[in-house]
Design a binder for these strands. Structure first.
Length: 339
DNA sequence: CGAATTTGACCGGCGC
DNA sequence: GCGCCGGTCAAATTCG
Protein backbone atom coordinates (compact mmCIF):
# COMPACT_ATOMS: atom_id res chain seq x y z
CA UNK A 1 0.00 0.00 0.00
CA UNK A 2 1.22 3.44 -0.85
CA UNK A 3 2.16 6.10 1.67
CA UNK A 4 -0.56 8.21 0.15
CA UNK A 5 -3.16 5.63 0.99
CA UNK A 6 -1.84 5.35 4.52
CA UNK A 7 -2.16 9.09 4.89
CA UNK A 8 -5.66 8.97 3.52
CA UNK A 9 -6.53 6.30 6.02
CA UNK A 10 -5.07 8.35 8.79
CA UNK A 11 -6.90 11.49 7.71
CA UNK A 12 -10.17 9.69 7.33
CA UNK A 13 -9.81 8.12 10.71
CA UNK A 14 -8.87 11.41 12.34
CA UNK A 15 -11.89 13.03 10.79
CA UNK A 16 -14.17 10.36 12.18
CA UNK A 17 -12.58 10.62 15.59
CA UNK A 18 -13.14 14.35 15.61
CA UNK A 19 -16.79 13.73 14.84
CA UNK A 20 -17.20 11.47 17.79
CA UNK A 21 -16.90 8.13 16.08
CA UNK A 22 -15.21 5.24 17.81
CA UNK A 23 -11.50 4.83 17.49
CA UNK A 24 -10.83 1.27 16.62
CA UNK A 25 -11.79 0.12 13.19
CA UNK A 26 -10.16 -2.88 11.62
CA UNK A 27 -9.01 -2.82 8.05
CA UNK A 28 -9.07 -5.01 5.03
CA UNK A 29 -6.56 -4.63 2.27
CA UNK A 30 -6.91 -6.32 -1.06
CA UNK A 31 -5.12 -5.47 -4.24
CA UNK A 32 -5.17 -1.70 -4.33
CA UNK A 33 -8.08 -1.26 -2.03
CA UNK A 34 -8.01 -0.41 1.56
CA UNK A 35 -11.19 -0.78 3.54
CA UNK A 36 -11.82 0.52 7.01
CA UNK A 37 -14.28 -1.63 8.83
CA UNK A 38 -16.45 -0.24 11.58
CA UNK A 39 -18.16 -3.52 12.26
CA UNK A 40 -17.39 -3.21 15.95
CA UNK A 41 -20.22 -0.80 16.16
CA UNK A 42 -23.30 -2.64 15.17
CA UNK A 43 -25.74 -2.04 13.69
CA UNK A 44 -23.51 0.03 11.52
CA UNK A 45 -20.76 -1.37 9.46
CA UNK A 46 -19.14 0.99 7.08
CA UNK A 47 -16.50 0.24 4.56
CA UNK A 48 -14.65 3.20 3.29
CA UNK A 49 -12.65 2.50 0.20
CA UNK A 50 -9.72 4.85 0.34
CA UNK A 51 -8.64 4.05 -3.15
CA UNK A 52 -11.93 5.38 -4.35
CA UNK A 53 -12.89 7.99 -1.77
CA UNK A 54 -16.20 8.71 -3.42
CA UNK A 55 -17.39 5.24 -2.56
CA UNK A 56 -18.72 4.46 0.84
CA UNK A 57 -20.14 1.08 1.52
CA UNK A 58 -22.12 0.59 4.61
CA UNK A 59 -23.91 -2.31 6.15
CA UNK A 60 -26.23 -2.91 8.98
CA UNK A 61 -25.28 -5.72 11.23
CA UNK A 62 -28.21 -7.25 12.98
CA UNK A 63 -26.43 -10.35 14.08
CA UNK A 64 -25.48 -8.86 17.41
CA UNK A 65 -29.01 -8.60 18.60
CA UNK A 66 -32.56 -9.45 17.83
CA UNK A 67 -33.76 -7.41 14.94
CA UNK A 68 -36.30 -4.69 15.57
CA UNK A 69 -39.86 -5.85 16.01
CA UNK A 70 -41.63 -2.61 15.87
CA UNK A 71 -42.28 -0.60 12.81
CA UNK A 72 -41.29 2.64 14.38
CA UNK A 73 -38.00 1.20 15.36
CA UNK A 74 -37.55 -0.11 11.85
CA UNK A 75 -38.10 3.37 10.63
CA UNK A 76 -35.67 4.82 13.10
CA UNK A 77 -33.13 2.23 12.24
CA UNK A 78 -33.35 2.90 8.56
CA UNK A 79 -33.46 6.60 9.05
CA UNK A 80 -30.40 6.46 11.18
CA UNK A 81 -28.64 4.60 8.44
CA UNK A 82 -29.63 7.17 5.91
CA UNK A 83 -28.47 9.91 8.22
CA UNK A 84 -25.25 8.16 8.85
CA UNK A 85 -24.36 7.72 5.23
CA UNK A 86 -25.30 11.29 4.54
CA UNK A 87 -22.60 12.54 6.81
CA UNK A 88 -19.86 11.63 4.38
CA UNK A 89 -19.59 12.87 0.82
CA UNK A 90 -20.39 9.95 -1.34
CA UNK A 91 -21.91 8.83 -4.53
CA UNK A 92 -25.16 6.90 -4.34
CA UNK A 93 -24.94 3.28 -3.48
CA UNK A 94 -26.87 2.13 -6.46
CA UNK A 95 -28.55 -1.18 -5.90
CA UNK A 96 -32.20 -0.71 -6.54
CA UNK A 97 -32.72 -3.37 -9.15
CA UNK A 98 -30.83 -6.16 -7.54
CA UNK A 99 -32.21 -9.56 -7.15
CA UNK A 100 -30.97 -10.80 -3.84
CA UNK A 101 -31.91 -14.39 -4.32
CA UNK A 102 -32.69 -16.15 -1.10
CA UNK A 103 -31.86 -13.19 1.07
CA UNK A 104 -34.89 -12.21 3.04
CA UNK A 105 -34.11 -8.57 3.21
CA UNK A 106 -31.72 -6.16 1.76
CA UNK A 107 -31.36 -2.58 2.73
CA UNK A 108 -29.85 0.09 0.62
CA UNK A 109 -30.44 3.54 -0.56
CA UNK A 110 -32.26 3.76 -3.80
CA UNK A 111 -30.77 5.82 -6.58
CA UNK A 112 -30.42 8.67 -4.17
CA UNK A 113 -27.68 11.12 -4.32
CA UNK A 114 -27.35 11.79 -0.65
CA UNK A 115 -25.50 15.00 -1.26
CA UNK A 116 -28.18 16.59 -3.36
CA UNK A 117 -31.13 16.02 -1.13
CA UNK A 118 -31.95 16.07 2.51
CA UNK A 119 -34.54 13.41 1.94
CA UNK A 120 -33.85 9.82 2.71
CA UNK A 121 -35.20 6.76 1.19
CA UNK A 122 -34.30 3.31 2.24
CA UNK A 123 -35.44 0.36 0.29
CA UNK A 124 -36.34 -2.94 1.79
CA UNK A 125 -36.98 -5.99 -0.18
CA UNK A 126 -39.24 -8.68 1.13
CA UNK A 127 -38.99 -11.88 -0.80
CA UNK A 128 -41.46 -13.58 1.49
CA UNK A 129 -44.10 -11.54 -0.26
CA UNK A 130 -43.20 -12.51 -3.77
CA UNK A 131 -41.53 -15.46 -5.25
CA UNK A 132 -39.70 -15.34 -7.53
CA UNK A 133 -38.50 -11.93 -6.55
CA UNK A 134 -39.10 -9.08 -8.89
CA UNK A 135 -38.01 -5.48 -8.81
CA UNK A 136 -41.46 -4.66 -7.46
CA UNK A 137 -40.75 -6.63 -4.34
CA UNK A 138 -38.59 -3.76 -3.19
CA UNK A 139 -40.44 -1.76 -0.64
CA UNK A 140 -39.73 1.76 0.10
CA UNK A 141 -39.53 3.63 3.30
CA UNK A 142 -39.23 7.38 3.38
CA UNK A 143 -38.13 9.41 6.30
CA UNK A 144 -40.51 12.05 7.61
CA UNK A 145 -38.62 14.82 5.89
CA UNK A 146 -38.23 12.86 2.70
CA UNK A 147 -38.87 14.35 -0.67
CA UNK A 148 -40.50 12.63 -3.56
CA UNK A 149 -39.55 9.16 -4.61
CA UNK A 150 -37.40 8.84 -7.66
CA UNK A 151 -39.39 8.83 -10.83
CA UNK A 152 -37.91 5.58 -11.98
CA UNK A 153 -38.27 3.88 -8.68
CA UNK A 154 -40.05 0.59 -8.84
CA UNK A 155 -41.27 1.29 -5.34
CA UNK A 156 -43.34 4.24 -6.35
CA UNK A 157 -46.75 4.20 -4.78
CA UNK A 158 -45.92 1.54 -2.26
CA UNK A 159 -45.18 3.67 0.73
CA UNK A 160 -48.11 2.26 2.60
CA UNK A 161 -46.58 -1.17 2.70
CA UNK A 162 -45.37 -2.37 6.03
CA UNK A 163 -41.73 -2.85 6.70
CA UNK A 164 -40.43 -6.28 7.36
CA UNK A 165 -36.88 -6.29 8.44
CA UNK A 166 -36.16 -9.91 8.86
CA UNK A 167 -37.49 -13.38 8.68
CA UNK A 168 -37.91 -15.11 12.01
CA UNK A 169 -38.97 -12.01 13.85
CA UNK A 170 -42.43 -11.21 15.08
CA UNK A 171 -43.29 -9.14 12.08
CA UNK A 172 -42.65 -12.00 9.74
CA UNK A 173 -44.62 -14.35 11.92
CA UNK A 174 -47.68 -12.23 12.10
CA UNK A 175 -47.57 -11.80 8.40
CA UNK A 176 -47.45 -15.51 7.76
CA UNK A 177 -50.27 -16.08 10.19
CA UNK A 178 -52.29 -13.60 8.24
CA UNK A 179 -51.78 -15.82 5.23
CA UNK A 180 -53.84 -18.50 6.94
CA UNK A 181 -51.30 -20.71 8.66
CA UNK A 182 -51.78 -22.07 12.13
CA UNK A 183 -49.50 -21.37 15.05
CA UNK A 184 -48.43 -25.00 15.05
CA UNK A 185 -47.37 -24.74 11.47
CA UNK A 186 -45.58 -21.58 12.29
CA UNK A 187 -43.65 -23.05 15.19
CA UNK A 188 -42.63 -26.03 13.15
CA UNK A 189 -40.06 -24.05 11.29
CA UNK A 190 -38.44 -21.47 13.52
CA UNK A 191 -35.55 -19.96 11.73
CA UNK A 192 -33.03 -17.61 13.24
CA UNK A 193 -33.34 -13.96 12.45
CA UNK A 194 -31.70 -13.08 9.22
CA UNK A 195 -30.35 -9.94 7.84
CA UNK A 196 -29.01 -9.40 4.38
CA UNK A 197 -27.20 -6.53 2.84
CA UNK A 198 -25.42 -5.76 -0.35
CA UNK A 199 -22.12 -4.11 -0.97
CA UNK A 200 -20.18 -3.17 -4.01
CA UNK A 201 -16.93 -4.96 -3.55
CA UNK A 202 -14.31 -6.89 -5.41
CA UNK A 203 -13.95 -9.04 -2.36
CA UNK A 204 -16.59 -11.65 -1.72
CA UNK A 205 -15.91 -12.29 1.90
CA UNK A 206 -15.55 -8.93 3.56
CA UNK A 207 -13.83 -8.76 6.90
CA UNK A 208 -16.47 -8.32 9.58
CA UNK A 209 -14.46 -8.97 12.69
CA UNK A 210 -15.56 -12.54 13.18
CA UNK A 211 -13.96 -15.80 12.15
CA UNK A 212 -15.86 -18.06 9.81
CA UNK A 213 -15.50 -21.59 8.53
CA UNK A 214 -16.86 -22.45 5.16
CA UNK A 215 -19.11 -25.49 5.21
CA UNK A 216 -20.68 -25.51 1.83
CA UNK A 217 -21.00 -24.02 -1.58
CA UNK A 218 -23.85 -24.33 -4.01
CA UNK A 219 -24.52 -23.17 -7.49
CA UNK A 220 -27.22 -20.53 -7.57
CA UNK A 221 -30.01 -21.00 -10.03
CA UNK A 222 -29.84 -18.56 -12.94
CA UNK A 223 -26.54 -17.24 -11.75
CA UNK A 224 -22.99 -17.80 -12.80
CA UNK A 225 -21.84 -17.19 -9.26
CA UNK A 226 -22.00 -19.74 -6.48
CA UNK A 227 -23.28 -19.16 -2.96
CA UNK A 228 -20.94 -19.93 -0.09
CA UNK A 229 -22.05 -20.99 3.35
CA UNK A 230 -20.10 -20.08 6.46
CA UNK A 231 -20.44 -20.78 10.15
CA UNK A 232 -18.92 -18.80 12.97
CA UNK A 233 -15.92 -20.72 14.28
CA UNK A 234 -16.53 -19.75 17.86
CA UNK A 235 -17.69 -22.63 20.04
CA UNK A 236 -21.41 -22.78 20.72
CA UNK A 237 -22.01 -19.87 18.38
CA UNK A 238 -24.48 -20.90 15.72
CA UNK A 239 -24.34 -17.80 13.56
CA UNK A 240 -24.17 -18.48 9.87
CA UNK A 241 -23.65 -16.35 6.88
CA UNK A 242 -24.10 -16.80 3.17
CA UNK A 243 -22.20 -14.93 0.59
CA UNK A 244 -23.04 -14.68 -3.05
CA UNK A 245 -22.41 -12.33 -5.89
CA UNK A 246 -25.33 -10.77 -7.67
CA UNK A 247 -25.73 -12.14 -11.16
CA UNK A 248 -27.33 -8.89 -12.26
CA UNK A 249 -24.45 -6.80 -11.09
CA UNK A 250 -21.35 -8.87 -10.46
CA UNK A 251 -19.76 -5.99 -8.61
CA UNK A 252 -22.31 -6.46 -5.86
CA UNK A 253 -21.85 -8.96 -3.07
CA UNK A 254 -24.89 -10.13 -1.12
CA UNK A 255 -24.19 -11.20 2.42
CA UNK A 256 -26.80 -12.74 4.66
CA UNK A 257 -26.30 -13.22 8.36
CA UNK A 258 -28.43 -15.62 10.33
CA UNK A 259 -28.55 -15.72 14.10
CA UNK A 260 -26.81 -13.84 16.86
CA UNK A 261 -23.28 -14.18 18.04
CA UNK A 262 -23.03 -15.24 21.67
CA UNK A 263 -19.64 -13.59 21.95
CA UNK A 264 -17.91 -10.41 20.90
CA UNK A 265 -15.87 -9.93 17.80
CA UNK A 266 -12.41 -11.48 18.12
CA UNK A 267 -11.04 -8.64 16.03
CA UNK A 268 -12.37 -6.17 18.55
CA UNK A 269 -10.75 -7.99 21.42
CA UNK A 270 -7.44 -8.04 19.65
CA UNK A 271 -7.64 -4.35 18.89
CA UNK A 272 -8.04 -4.53 15.16
CA UNK A 273 -5.63 -4.49 12.28
CA UNK A 274 -5.84 -0.76 11.78
CA UNK A 275 -3.33 -0.19 14.53
CA UNK A 276 -0.72 -1.79 12.34
CA UNK A 277 -0.48 1.20 10.09
CA UNK A 278 -2.39 4.03 11.62
CA UNK A 279 -0.80 6.30 14.17
CA UNK A 280 -0.45 4.28 17.37
CA UNK A 281 -1.55 7.23 19.46
CA UNK A 282 -4.99 6.93 17.97
CA UNK A 283 -5.42 3.49 19.36
CA UNK A 284 -3.82 3.55 22.74
CA UNK A 285 -4.76 2.78 25.35
CA UNK A 286 -6.76 -0.10 23.95
CA UNK A 287 -10.46 0.66 24.01
CA UNK A 288 -12.99 -1.63 25.65
CA UNK A 289 -14.55 -4.27 23.47
CA UNK A 290 -17.82 -2.39 23.59
CA UNK A 291 -19.00 0.77 25.18
CA UNK A 292 -20.81 0.27 28.44
CA UNK A 293 -24.38 1.10 27.71
CA UNK A 294 -27.57 0.91 29.69
CA UNK A 295 -29.94 -1.96 29.12
CA UNK A 296 -32.53 -0.71 26.70
CA UNK A 297 -35.87 -1.88 25.54
CA UNK A 298 -35.66 -2.33 21.84
CA UNK A 299 -39.40 -1.98 21.59
CA UNK A 300 -39.16 1.53 22.90
CA UNK A 301 -36.74 3.48 20.77
CA UNK A 302 -37.59 6.79 22.34
CA UNK A 303 -36.75 5.48 25.79
CA UNK A 304 -33.56 4.02 24.45
CA UNK A 305 -32.64 7.33 22.95
CA UNK A 306 -33.27 9.13 26.23
CA UNK A 307 -31.23 6.65 28.20
CA UNK A 308 -28.39 6.87 25.79
CA UNK A 309 -28.42 10.60 25.52
CA UNK A 310 -28.10 10.93 29.27
CA UNK A 311 -24.95 8.88 29.35
CA UNK A 312 -23.31 9.37 26.03
CA UNK A 313 -24.31 12.71 24.65
CA UNK A 314 -21.19 14.56 25.76
CA UNK A 315 -19.01 12.31 23.62
CA UNK A 316 -21.00 12.97 20.51
CA UNK A 317 -20.76 15.89 18.16
CA UNK A 318 -23.45 18.47 18.15
CA UNK A 319 -24.78 17.37 14.86
CA UNK A 320 -28.22 16.06 14.16
CA UNK A 321 -26.90 13.48 11.75
CA UNK A 322 -25.63 11.43 14.62
CA UNK A 323 -28.64 11.75 16.84
CA UNK A 324 -30.03 8.39 15.93
CA UNK A 325 -26.81 6.52 15.80
CA UNK A 326 -26.24 6.02 19.53
CA UNK A 327 -29.82 4.97 20.00
CA UNK A 328 -29.54 2.22 17.50
CA UNK A 329 -26.12 1.31 18.69
CA UNK A 330 -27.26 0.79 22.23
CA UNK A 331 -30.27 -1.18 21.11
CA UNK A 332 -28.18 -3.60 19.19
CA UNK A 333 -25.34 -3.97 21.59
CA UNK A 334 -27.41 -5.29 24.42
CA UNK A 335 -28.05 -8.96 23.99
CA UNK A 336 -30.11 -10.55 26.73
CA UNK A 337 -28.78 -13.95 25.73
CA UNK A 338 -25.19 -13.01 26.30
CA UNK A 339 -23.50 -15.04 29.01
C1' DC B 1 -0.17 -32.54 11.14
C1' DG B 2 -4.08 -30.02 12.45
C1' DA B 3 -7.11 -26.69 10.44
C1' DA B 4 -9.67 -25.11 6.72
C1' DT B 5 -11.72 -25.82 2.29
C1' DT B 6 -13.77 -28.41 -1.41
C1' DT B 7 -17.31 -30.99 -3.30
C1' DG B 8 -20.55 -34.65 -4.13
C1' DA B 9 -24.06 -36.90 -1.37
C1' DC B 10 -27.82 -36.38 1.27
C1' DC B 11 -32.03 -34.38 3.41
C1' DG B 12 -36.31 -31.89 3.98
C1' DG B 13 -39.64 -28.65 2.14
C1' DC B 14 -42.43 -27.46 -1.52
C1' DG B 15 -44.97 -27.29 -5.88
C1' DC B 16 -46.96 -29.92 -9.45
C1' DG C 1 -45.09 -39.57 -5.63
C1' DC C 2 -41.68 -37.16 -8.00
C1' DG C 3 -38.48 -33.76 -9.05
C1' DC C 4 -36.50 -29.40 -7.94
C1' DC C 5 -34.14 -26.57 -4.84
C1' DG C 6 -31.84 -24.65 -0.81
C1' DG C 7 -29.18 -26.02 2.79
C1' DT C 8 -26.05 -29.18 5.31
C1' DC C 9 -22.93 -33.04 6.03
C1' DA C 10 -18.72 -35.23 5.83
C1' DA C 11 -14.94 -37.53 3.43
C1' DA C 12 -11.28 -36.13 0.66
C1' DT C 13 -8.17 -32.75 -0.31
C1' DT C 14 -5.49 -28.67 0.31
C1' DC C 15 -3.28 -25.32 3.06
C1' DG C 16 -0.28 -23.19 6.51
Amino acid sequence: MSEQTKDAAHDHHSMLLSQGFPSFPTTTTTHDHHLINYSHYPPFMMYHDLQNPTTHQFHHTHHHHNPPHDHDLCSLFLQASADYITTAPSTPFHLSSNNCSSSEVAVCNNNKNWNDSNSHEVVIRDIAAENPPTPNSWRSFSSPEAGSVDEDSSCKGKKDLQLEVCEGGDIGKSKKLKAGKTKEEENKKQREARFAFMTKSEVDNLEDGYRWRKYGQKAVKNSAFPRSYYRCTSQKCSVKKRIERSHEDPSVVITTYEGQHNHHSPATIRGGAAAAFLAPSLFSPPPPAFPILPQVDIFSPSTAAQQYSQQQQPQLPDHHHYSLFPDMLSSFLQNPHDP
